[in-house]
């Protein structure tokens, strides 16, 4: 009996804790000769995009259901909106689809906050190769 109890406790301790995540997934790509990289790895969350490029993203998270409560939609906060700006998509009633557009060269951060977790993306907006510097 004691052995069984100890085994159960040991198994319980081995069940991995669910890592809560919120991430962006691209819905559209860049036009020809322009760059858009949305990096979503354990060790790096980043967006590399050329100035002038707009792209749509959807926000996905694994937060537990809110039960009877109304789920809080995720939010996007961009540290420097003169570099990258975000707008909601009109067709997204769950407010999980956004359009991001790169306005000028520079670096900033984009923080995605879901009900149970948040994720910061490092953003780098660059001038495309061969393009004149404005």
């Amino acid at each position: 009996m004691k052995r069984s109890l100890a085994l159960l406790l040991l198994l319980g301790a081995c069940v991995p804790e669910v890592q809560r995540r919120v991430e962006l997934y691209p819905m559209t790509g860049a036009p020809p000769a322009r760059t858009l990289r949305l990096i979503t790895r354990d060790d790096k969350h980043a967006i590399e995009v050329n100035a002038g490029v707009a792209f749509a993203v959807t926000i996905s998270d694994n937060c537990p259901p809110a039960g009877n409560a109304t789920p809080t939609p995720p939010t996007l906060v961009i540290a420097d909106p003169t570099v990258l700006e975000s707008r909601g998509l009109s067709r997204s009633p769950a407010q999980r689809e956004w359009v991001l557009f790169a306005k000028k060269s520079g670096r900033t951060t984009l923080e995605v906050t879901a009900q149970c977790t948040k994720q910061v993306y490092e953003v780098e907006v660059t001038t495309p190769m061969g393009a004149p510097q404005h």
């Binding site: 036009p31 000769a33 322009r34 050329n50 100035a51 002038g52 490029v53 707009a54 707008r87 009109s90 359009v99 557009f101 495309p128 393009a131 004149p132 404005h134």
Partner: peptide, 11 residues
Amino acid sequence: GAGASAILFVG
């Protein structure tokens, strides 16, 4: 200016 830019239709 030479280059490419997105034009957004904002409602």
